[in-house]
Each structure stands twice: as structure tokens, then as C-alpha cells.
């Protein structure tokens, strides 16, 4: 085919991409240009390029805020705990489910455990606020009948992070379990037969066949979760926290929201957001690189 004809054949393909290209240039690359707000005393009516340039003032202002260290600490602690718990529990649940004899029970349990994944944090938040209430909540009623004093799970700084981790695990473990179960079912059944002939019991089969069979996907999930070191979960925190537990529950994202959209401190809020985006860029890039190197996974 000559070059001219080839080029002409390509034209429809470019036309197809064009709408998406225009949209991401406006709504994804536009905001990246808008990051200059972080270095400005931004006034919306003057626009991105008309506002006064203040250099690093916004960053200095942020660093001088008394709560900023605590917020960073909360973010990392919540995010990291979620990552670690989120890796172990689903693997264990998947292995346990695999040990169930009856397929019907297995499917019924699977169906139940990933239901919360599809409900939003607004719905789940509403439910949790209700059942965790210290006065009339279901959980505290049960604890009360066991003689335990009411616990204010969502209003006590000693309990808040714990509650956040547990409820997040509750929402998400079923979803991750499915991924591991899929890996288990793809293990070659001949391997088990060979192992049984060699006299291996169920534990040894799990240890020597099932787990190695899941190795790649476990590595992959671990590595990909690295990208979330600063994602403590805005949707969850925003729907569960309140001013009483800012001390343990305020994270970068909720802070940016309040500072930027409630207090209208656009410059400083953008500066905090930029910090998060930059750190995440590094971690996500590293995680994709490792996923490619260790698990042979490339996203495109």
C-alpha cells in the first residue's frame, strides 16, 4: 500500500479519538495547567493567569499550620493499614472459600461478601452512623447485653481510625477475594492429583500448589496498591467523620476540600493537592514499573 492511501485510511481513526482527546485536554490537562493557582494569590474573577504570583508563599503558609503534620500522619497511617489489611484478608478468605466442598454454599457466600463493594459510602455511611450510634445503635445494643459500656465508634478519637479500617475492610474484602479466587480456579488440577498421589495433605497442597499458583496475582495486587499510599479514602472519611474526630480522621483530601471549597483558600488548598499529586505520581509510576517487571503486567 502506498503511503498516501495508508494515511487516508488512518483519518477515521483520528476522528474517532478526537472527542475523547478534546475532553481530556479540557478536563484533565486543563486542571494541570490550573495548578499554577498553588503559586498565586488566586482570585477567580482574574483567572489562572491574571492572579498575583506569590511564589512559594502558599506552601510556607501550609507548613506553618499547626494541624498539617497530624493530617499527613493520619493519611499515611490510615492508607497504609488499609493496604496491608486489604492484602492479607482477601487471600485468606479466598483460600478458605476454596476449601468449601459445596459449590452452592461457596457461591452464596461469595454473592454476599461483595455486595457492600457496590454500595456507595453515602449509603454505607448512613447505615454505619445508625448502627454504630452509642445510644440506639445495633452494635452497642449487643455490646451492652454483654456488659460493655457504649462505645462512640465514630465520635471517639481512640476508636475512629480502628472503625474506619474495619468498615473499609468490610466493604472491600469481598471484591478482592474474587480476584484471588479466579487465580485459584486457574491452577492446573493435574498438579493436585499428582500431589495426592505423592501423599500430600490439604495443607501441603495449599502451601505448595495453591499459594504458588496465586503468587503472580498477589505480587501484582501488592505492587499496584503502592500507588494508594496517600489515598486514605476521601469518600469514606467524608461520610463518617465529624469535627470531634478531626484529630484522628482528617486526611489530606478532606483537608483540601474544607480549605479550598468551604474556606475559599484556593491557593493553599491547591498547594496541598499538588503535593499529594506529585507524591502519588512517583508511587504510581514505581508501582506500574514494578508490576511490569515482577508480574509481567502492563496496563496498556
Amino acid at each position: 500500500m502506498n503511503l498516501n492511501l495508508k494515511l487516508r485510511r488512518e483519518i477515521p481513526l483520528h476522528i474517532m479519538i478526537l472527542p475523547a482527546l478534546v475532553l481530556i485536554i479540557i478536563f484533565n490537562y486543563g486542571p494541570m495547567v490550573g495548578i499554577i493557582i498553588a503559586f498565586e494569590k488566586y482570585i477567580p474573577t482574574k483567572g489562572f493567569f491574571g492572579s498575583k504570583w506569590v511564589g512559594l508563599d502558599n506552601f510556607r503558609y501550609i507548613l506553618s499550620m499547626p494541624d498539617i503534620q497530624q493530617i499527613l500522619k493520619n493519611t499515611i497511617v490510615i492508607a497504609m493499614t488499609k493496604i496491608v489489611v486489604g492484602l492479607f484478608i482477601p487471600v485468606i478468605v479466598a483460600l478458605s472459600l476454596n476449601e468449601l466442598g459445596s459449590d452452592r454454599t461457596k457461591r452464596a457466600i461469595q454473592t454476599s461478601i461483595y455486595l457492600p463493594h457496590f454500595l456507595s459510602w453515602v449509603i454505607l455511611g448512613g447505615i454505619l452512623v445508625d448502627i454504630l450510634s452509642p445510644s440506639s445503635g445495633f452494635v452497642n445494643k449487643i455490646l451492652g447485653s454483654l456488659g460493655v459500656e457504649p462505645i462512640f465508634f465514630l465520635g471517639d478519637n481512640d476508636w475512629f481510625q480502628f472503625t474506619v479500617i474495619i468498615t473499609n475492610t468490610w466493604k472491600e474484602f469481598g471484591y478482592a477475594t474474587i480476584i484471588y479466587l479466579a487465580a485459584i480456579t486457574s491452577v492446573d488440577p493435574n498438579l493436585y492429583e499428582a500431589a495426592i498421589v505423592d501423599g500430600a495433605n490439604r495443607w501441603r497442597q495449599t502451601w505448595h500448589i495453591t499459594l504458588p499458583g496465586m503468587k503472580t496475582i498477589i505480587i501484582l495486587m501488592t505492587v499496584l496498591s503502592l500507588g494508594a499510599v496517600l489515598n486514605a479514602g476521601f469518600d469514606q472519611l467524608f461520610n463518617l467523620y465529624n469535627p470531634i474526630v478531626y484529630e484522628t480522621g482528617d486526611i489530606i483530601d478532606t483537608f483540601v476540600y474544607r480549605l479550598g471549597l468551604i474556606d475559599a483558600q484556593f491557593g493553599p488548598a491547591t498547594a496541598v493537592g499538588l503535593f499529594k499529586s506529585l507524591v502519588s505520581l512517583v508511587f504510581i509510576s514505581v508501582s506500574y514499573f514494578l508490576a511490569d517487571k515482577l508480574a509481567g503486567y502492563s496496563i496498556f
Binding site: R9, F27, P31, G34, I35, I37, P44, G273, S277, I299
Partner: peptide, 29 residues
């Protein structure tokens, strides 16, 4: 079939790696 596919892919993938953040996105909208 599409010689600059690589460039297109990167333009899309980069949005998964980096974003402008809440405030600039709000301002654009």
C-alpha cells in the same frame, strides 16, 4: 494501522498517573 498510537496512549495513561487536584478541576468546570 495507527502510527501515532503510542502518543495517544500516553496522553490517556498520563491522566491516570497525575491530576490537577480538586481545586483546579473545580475552577475549570
Amino acid at each position: 494501522d495507527l502510527r501515532i498510537r503510542g502518543i495517544y496512549i500516553w496522553v490517556f495513561i498520563f491522566t491516570m498517573l497525575f491530576n490537577g487536584g480538586l481545586i483546579p478541576t473545580y475552577m475549570i468546570i
